[in-house]
Design a protein around this nucleic acid. Sequence first.
DNA 1: ATCGGCTCGCGCAA
DNA 2: TGCGCGAAGCCGAT
Length: 470
Amino acid sequence: MLKYEERIRRLNHHPLRGGARYVLYWARFNRRVTFHHGLLVAAELANQLDLPLLYYERLSASAPYANDRLHTFVLEGVPETARRLQQLGVGYVFDLVCDGSGPGDTLERLAAQAAALLTDDYPDAVAARHDARVPTHLSLPVWAVDSSCIVPMSLIGERQYAAYSIRPKLRRWLAKYLKPLPSVRVRRRYSAPPDPRHVPVSASKIPCLVRSCVADHMVRPSLTFRGGAAEAERRLRRFLTHNLRRYARFRNQPATRATSDLSPYLHFGQLSALEAAWEAKSHAEQEGLIAEEFLEELIVRRELAFNFCRFAARVDSLEELPAWARVTLERHAADRRPFVYRYEQFRDAETHDELWNATQKELLLTGKIHGYYRMYWGKKIIEWSASYQEALETMITLHERFALDGRDPNTYANILWCFGLHDRPWRERPVLGTLRYISREGMQRKTDVGAYLRQIAGLERTGRLPEPVE
DNA sequence: ATCGGCTCGCGCAA
DNA sequence: TGCGCGAAGCCGAT
């Protein structure tokens, strides 16, 4: 019986391969070394078998929307991962597939000498295709481990829930699961000559490596987010020290910069949600602060999104909406739109509305939109697109191309929230039907739009956003 | 400034 | 079967 058994999904039932050289861990979504259930399970298995542990990570130009922004962010995490694995005695193969022809055969080659292959359990369509294919043609055990959610997805129940239903379930389990994890310990150090496919990465080589990939070079690296676990931990620390006390009051005031800005790191798994939540809870207890609102977003809303994506046939379809939302959209499909823009006009921030344009510029330049204005951004795309389907496609494409958290369960759930997911009906009106309406006047009334516009103008001019201000 | 209604479906108590 | 209530709102009445 292994530790964290409730997080393990066995994708096949092959016996452990004898005469193997190591246990192999493939970091697909959780690209980190600490607070990592999957890596701990792999290490435990390796220790039981008296084998070393090998950590495999891949960055492929054949991934959807491969571009300089996403590649740079992932590559910036690699030197720190290498350093940490080296210290622990765990082997590391970082595989950069530059030509976009496909994922290559490195995984198969490494798996041929492994006792077992472990990877991340993650509600993603690309991962699901791998999960269906890989375990049958590799003759070794393949296990997927849930290292993303604080409360294991498998304990929540085999269906989609609403926030108010999932919240008490999560709360009940948190006493058990909101606890720090040990660091990885291996009995046998990995010592083999470097694999021929391993690409050593240092910070200075990243621009050159990025250029060498067949990818969309027009999407420039983020001006404000640098990738990596060390950077993520630095931002978490800074958030806890300066912003946790302001979070409840100012999180919906974009210009105050009171949010954690951790979503890119959470998305690539460079930071563990468990670590962030545990540190927030501990810090709040020490300092006499309230972390409730932050933990609600980090745990309840995030794991609600994972629950949605886990049971959605597809996350990019209006078919997944609740019945009342589908019905109201059907009724209003032919309503006259006040403005109609195409994808390119949205992409280039060329609408009549300077606030909307500013939110889009934040996405283009930083790779993220402030959560509160992102709702406004999404609702207006619905109102200003020729059809609901086109609006959905615009929102998803803009995120997948430009956002550092683009393919995250949270992002899909947030986009579909604009179409009524996890929400309820409101007063009926044109185009949106009974979907919740968000107005420019409301944004003006409740937030400091002028300050935000000045910040985005400053971002365009200097490439920087201000640090948090009181 | 504050408050209720809008409008639907789910979970739970009865 | 009925009741309460829900991710971030809006609007009109007081």
